[in-house]
């Protein structure tokens, strides 16, 4: 009985200390010191909130750079993937569809220049990045659609390429939303 009462009291004490005091204290400090990150790295464009720097969006318009395949249509109220096994026939079908769509919309770029990240579902369903190669492969389509020179598009991709962190950690990558925002700015000039 004594063990029971001690357990109960300590449980409630730790619920307060670890469960409430700890996260609320961290939240208080973070909101004061790092408000941008703490609230989800939201990007505003002309006073409107257009997304988060860290969360991918679905782009369908051929004039925009497109990101990873997302089975949840980049709905960041949740997160997820179809969890296909390498041997799953449904995955094979989906990849084949992506490839045939690619061939229709990007007739100038042969398949062997299409990096694998463009035709595979990301882990989060919200991947904000593609590889630089995946961005370069889309340049001919976009150049045709909006009439901007390939060289200028190349520069924009380079500008939005980040990583690896400290020159070593992680992969080189392009933030698709930020790149498309730059693209819009370029067109408005």
């Amino acid at each position: 009985m004594k063990t029971f009462i001690t357990s109960l009291r300590l449980s409630l004490a730790f619920m307060l200390l670890c469960g409430l005091a700890y996260p609320f204290a961290v939240t208080g400090v973070a909101q004061a010191v790092l408000p941008d990150q703490a609230n989800g790295s939201i990007i505003s464009n002309q006073g409107k909130e257009v997304g988060s720097k860290l969360i991918g969006q679905d782009f369908h318009d051929p004039k925009y750079f497109q990101g990873r395949v997302s089975s949840i249509k980049s709905d960041a109220a949740g997160s997820g993937t179809p969890n296909y096994a390498p041997s799953n026939e449904d995955m094979k079908k989906r990849v084949e569809e992506s490839i045939s769509t690619w061939k229709q919309t990007n007739p100038d770029v042969p398949l062997n220049q299409v990096p694998v990240d463009l035709i595979t579902n990301s882990g989060s369903g919200l991947d904000p990045h593609i590889s630089p190669e995946a961005a370069f492969a889309q340049i001919p389509r976009i150049a045709k659609a909006i009439g901007l020179s390939s060289d200028r598009l190349h520069q924009l991709v380079e500008k939005n390429t980040q990583g690896p962190e400290l020159g070593l950690f992680g992969e080189k990558r392009v933030n698709v939303l930020e790149l498309n925002l730059d693209l819009n700015r370029e067109l408005q000039r």
Binding site: T81, N112, N121, S122, D127, E133, G170
Partner: peptide, 18 residues
């Protein structure tokens, strides 16, 4: 399938980690 697959198996992976 003939795509450029130097990056390896990217199904279910995010680009920043590879």
């Amino acid at each position: 399938m003939g795509v450029q697959h130097d990056a390896g198996s990217m199904e279910g992976k995010d680009v920043r980690f590879g």
